[in-house]
Structures are given as C-alpha cells and as structure tokens.
C-alpha cells in the first residue's frame, strides 16, 4: 500500500498531537506522557466514528 497518497492525518488520529501541543503552555514535566495519553484517548474517538461506519 506504499504507492498510495499519504492521508492528511494518519489512521488512528482525530486531532494530531502536533496540533494539540500548540494550544498548551510549555510543558514543565514529562511531555512524552502527555503526548502518549492524548493519542491513546484520541484513538478512542477515531475507533468510535470508524466503527459507526464499518460495524453499525
């Protein structure tokens, strides 16, 4: 599938971390933790809409 056009946002993403971090003040602690949990929960929204389409 490598010859296909890259999607605007990769699968599994509703709001990319790169966009979200622009809204935040400078992160004083563990940025990786904040990123990882943002993406984990963001993926739940992705699963919701795509399963509405595919499964229901």
């Amino acid at each position: 599938m490598s010859d296909k056009k890259e999607p605007k946002w990769k699968p599994g993403v509703c709001i990319p971390w790169e966009e979200k971090i622009k809204e935040l003040p400078p992160i004083r602690g563990d940025e990786e933790l904040v990123r990882r949990k943002w993406e984990d929960i963001d993926q739940l929204a992705y699963i919701y809409i795509w399963h509405c389409l595919v499964s229901f």
Binding site: M1, K4, K5, P7, K10, P11, I47, W50, H51, V54
Partner: peptide, 14 residues
C-alpha cells in the same frame, strides 16, 4: 476508495 484504504486496514488490524 484509495483514501479509505489505510483507515479500513487500521480498523481491521485493531
């Protein structure tokens, strides 16, 4: 169809 492909793959593998 091509735009849907990576998403349907992602959901399937998930």
């Amino acid at each position: 169809c091509e735009a849907l492909m990576p998403h349907l793959l992602h959901i399937a593998l998930g």
